[in-house]
Computed example of a mutant assay.
Amino acid sequence: MSVKSDEEILANSMYEDDPNGNSAPTTTDDQEVEQPMVHKATTQTGTPITSPRWGPQNKGAQELASLYSPGKRAQEIFCVYACLGLMALNLILIVKHMRWERINVAFVSALCGIITADFASGLVHWAADTWGSVDLPLIGKNFLRPFREHHLDPTSITRHDFIETNGDNFMVGIPILGYLAHYFYVKSPYEIQQHFGWISYVFLCSIFVAMTNQIHKWSHTYWGLPKWVQLLQSCHIILPRKHHRIHHVAPHETYFCITTGWLNWPLERIRFWCTLEIIIEHFTGLKPRDDDMKWAKKLT
């Protein structure tokens, strides 16, 4: 059972079948209902004005998008090509050393790797959504900025190309896949067979970590998805669109895992994220999602 009702999700999240229009939904008898997607304010003379709460017309989203720099782009290009090369190299080495008698071990280990990747995606997503500021040196504009932009303009990710979408996650995969390739070259064939389960775990975990933001992008894409992607979503092998929409209910405090989403429900049941937030706030005095709320209130 969802932690939020369908009504709450619809009332408080962006209507992605009309991603950039911020248009109001209608009731069954075509009467317009209250619009939750705009901020209402007044000018100095008291004249009411309306500013989009979500989408590319939101002022905060526009400012955040403008902070994407050429240096950041260069880093992403390098990381994508380096990681793709390491993926191909490790796949060749795994196929070379594959033995049928190790298939069961490899399958179970790979499944554990996917679960680990899902948890890692939730942990990073929660940390970047909840703590820190865009004004922080180095990590603010380079790594926290996309998370703030995404909450104000969720479908911006669908307008990012492959490089911008995946650069940061592919960067995470480089040292892990680099170590794995090194392991193949320094270990004997016997040692590789003895540790083939561990190798399968590391490889699949790395692949799913690297592909997390592409999977995330697909969860916001409502038109033109390949049939095989839709099949994986419908089987909940990767993050489904309806499942991820729960996270985009303001104030974005739940369902942080975005690789498969398998761990979202159990983590919510044990109140994992909110317990961490209570502990951190108690010892540091920091308020969760304080910076995220600041950008959400930016109208001009």
Score class of each variant (00 low, 15 high):
Glu101Arg: 01
Thr47His: 13
Gln233Pro: 01
Gln230Asn: 12
His282Pro: 05
Asp6Tyr: 06
Ser2Trp: 09
Ser219Thr: 06
Val108Gln: 10
Thr116Tyr: 08
Gln57Asn: 14
Pro175Glu: 00
Val134Glu: 11
Gly285Thr: 09
His282Tyr: 14
Leu67Gln: 08
Ile115Met: 04
Tyr68Asp: 03
His220Gln: 06
Lys294Gln: 12
Pro36Tyr: 15
Gln230Tyr: 07
Tyr15Arg: 15
Ser51Asn: 03
Asn264Gln: 13
Gly178Val: 10
Arg145Ser: 11
Ser206Ile: 01
Phe196Ser: 07
Cys235Thr: 10
Gln44Asp: 11
Trp265Lys: 15
Gly85Lys: 05
Pro48Met: 11
Leu144Pro: 06
Gly85His: 06
Gly285Trp: 04
Ala106Lys: 13
Asp153Cys: 05
Pro137Thr: 09
Asn22Gly: 13
Gly46Asp: 02
Arg241Lys: 15
Leu231His: 12
Met37Val: 12
Gln75Ser: 10
Val105Met: 11
Leu177His: 07
Leu111Arg: 08
Thr212Met: 08
Ala210Phe: 05
Leu84Gln: 08
Leu136Ile: 06
Pro266Asp: 05
Gln62Ser: 13
Leu93Cys: 01
Cys112Lys: 05
Tyr183Glu: 08
Ala65Leu: 13
Leu204Ser: 11
Gly71Tyr: 05
Phe208Ile: 08
Tyr185Phe: 15
Thr284Lys: 08
Lys96Tyr: 10
Gln214Ser: 03
Thr28Gly: 06
His97Thr: 01
His195Ala: 12
Glu8His: 01
Ile163Asn: 04
Phe107Gly: 08
Glu8Gly: 02
Asp18Ala: 13
Pro137Phe: 03
Gly132Leu: 08
Ser188Gly: 12
Ala210Trp: 02
Thr50Leu: 13
His150Ile: 08
Pro56Cys: 02
Ser23Phe: 05
Ser23Asn: 14
Ser13Ala: 15
Tyr81Val: 09
Ile207Gln: 06
Cys205Ile: 06
Cys79Met: 12
Arg245Glu: 14
